[in-house]
C-alpha cells in the first residue's frame, strides 16, 4: 500500500471516529437526567401551565422528534451556526469565541513552560542516568504526576492570595478596572500566574518522563557511541546529536497535549474562577444548556482529534527511521 492511500485510509478512519463522537455528543445531553426547561423558562417553571410549558419547549425546538433534532444539530455544525444559549440568550459562537483565548492563554503558556522545563530536566536526568539527580528528579516527577490538581490549586490560593496577598486568586482580569495597554497586560499576566503555575507544575512530569526515556534510548544508539568513540566531548555530543534526536518523540506527546489544551482544564478553571472554555462546559452541563454543551463538546472533540492527527502525521516526518 502506498503512503498516500495509507494516509487516505487513516483520514477515513478519523472521519468515522469524528462522526460517531459528534453523534454521541448529541446523545449525551439528552441521556442526562434533568431537563433544560428550568433554564429556558426561568425560575418560575413550577408555576407554568401545561400550555406555557409546551410553548417554551417548542420554542427551544425540544418538542421535535429526536431524528429532527439530530438533523438540526448536524445542520448547525455544518453551517457553524449554533444558535442561542438557553441560558444567556446570546449566540453560542460569541460565547465560545470569548472563552477560547482565555483557556488558550492558560494552557498554551503552561504547555510551553512544561515543555521547556520538562525537556531540559528530562534530558539532564538521562544524561546523568542512575545518578542522584536522576533518581531524585524521577521520584519528584512521579510524585507530582500523582498530585490532585484541585488540591494544589487551592493550596496555592490559600498561600499566595489569602496568606501572603501577592497574587489575585480568581478571574482573568480585574473586573471593572478599565485598564488599557501595558497596565491591562500586566493585570492579565498577574491573574494568569497561579493557574498557569498549577497547570505547568502538573504537566511537567509527562514531558519529563517522555524526554528522559527518549534520551536514554538515543544514548544507546550506535552512532552516538561512535561519536563518543571518535573522542567528541560528551557535552557536544549531548547537545548536537542526542537532544535533537530525542526531541522527536517528545513532539508527539506535546502535540497530543495541544488537543487537551482546549478543554482539559475544567478543574483549574473552577478552582481559579477563570472564564475559560472548560468552565463554560461545566456550567452548561450543570444547567443542561444543550446547545452550549454541544458546541463546547464539539470544540473539545475536534481539537483532540486534530491533535491526534497531528501527532500521527508528525511522527513519521520527524523520525527518518520510521519512514517506509
Amino acid at each position: 500500500m502506498n503512503a498516500r492511500r495509507l494516509g487516505l485510509a487513516r483520514l477515513g478512519q478519523y472521519a468515522i471516529v469524528l462522526v460517531v463522537a459528534v453523534s454521541l455528543n448529541f446523545a449525551l445531553p439528552r441521556l442526562m437526567p434533568g431537563s433544560p426547561l428550568a433554564l429556558i423558562a426561568g425560575v418560575e417553571v413550577g408555576e407554568m401551565s401545561p400550555e406555557e410549558r409546551a410553548a417554551v419547549t417548542a420554542d427551544a425546538g425540544l418538542d421535535q422528534p429526536l431524528v429532527v433534532q439530530y438533523l438540526t444539530y448536524w445542520k448547525s455544525i455544518l453551517t457553524l451556526d449554533f444558535g442561542y444559549s438557553f441560558r444567556q440568550g446570546t449566540p453560542i459562537e460569541e460565547l465560545v469565541l470569548e472563552r477560547v483565548p482565555w483557556t488558550l492563554l492558560l494552557t498554551l503558556t503552561a504547555l510551553v513552560v512544561s515543555a521547556v522545563v520538562g525537556i531540559a530536566l528530562g534530558a539532564f536526568a538521562a544524561w546523568r542516568r542512575g545518578g542522584a539527580w536522576d533518581v531524585s528528579s524521577l521520584t519528584v516527577m512521579i510524585a507530582l504526576e500523582s498530585t490532585p490538581q484541585f488540591w494544589l490549586g487551592m493550596l496555592f490560593i490559600a498561600l499566595f492570595s489569602v496568606s501572603l496577598g501577592w497574587l489575585p486568586s480568581f478571574g482573568a482580569t480585574t473586573a471593572g478596572a478599565d485598564l488599557t495597554g501595558l497596565a491591562w497586560l500586566a493585570d492579565v499576566a498577574e491573574h494568569a500566574v497561579l493557574p498557569v503555575l498549577t497547570l505547568s507544575i502538573l504537566s511537567i512530569p509527562a514531558v519529563y518522563l517522555s524526554m528522559r526515556y527518549s534520551t536514554l534510548s538515543v544514548l544507546g544508539e550506535d552512532y552516538i557511541r561512535t561519536a563518543q568513540a571518535k573522542g567528541l566531548r560528551p557535552r557536544a555530543v549531548m547537545l548536537h546529536h542526542v537532544v535533537r534526536t530525542a526531541l522527536l518523540p517528545v513532539t508527539t506527546v506535546l502535540a497530543l497535549r495541544l488537543g487537551w489544551a482546549f478543554g482539559g482544564t475544567v478543574v483549574i478553571e473552577t478552582v481559579f474562577s477563570y472564564p475559560g472554555l472548560g468552565r463554560l462546559m461545566y456550567d452548561a452541563v450543570s444547567a443542561r444548556d444543550y446547545p452550549v454543551m454541544q458546541a463546547t463538546f464539539l470544540v473539545f472533540t475536534v481539537a483532540v482529534l486534530l491533535a491526534n492527527l497531528l501527532a500521527d502525521s508528525l511522527y513519521p516526518r520527524l523520525d527518518p527511521r520510521t519512514r517506509v
Partner: peptide, 11 residues
Amino acid sequence: VQFADEAGATA
C-alpha cells in the same frame, strides 16, 4: 464578579 464556587469567593 462571578465565581465558580463559594470557596473561591470566600478566598
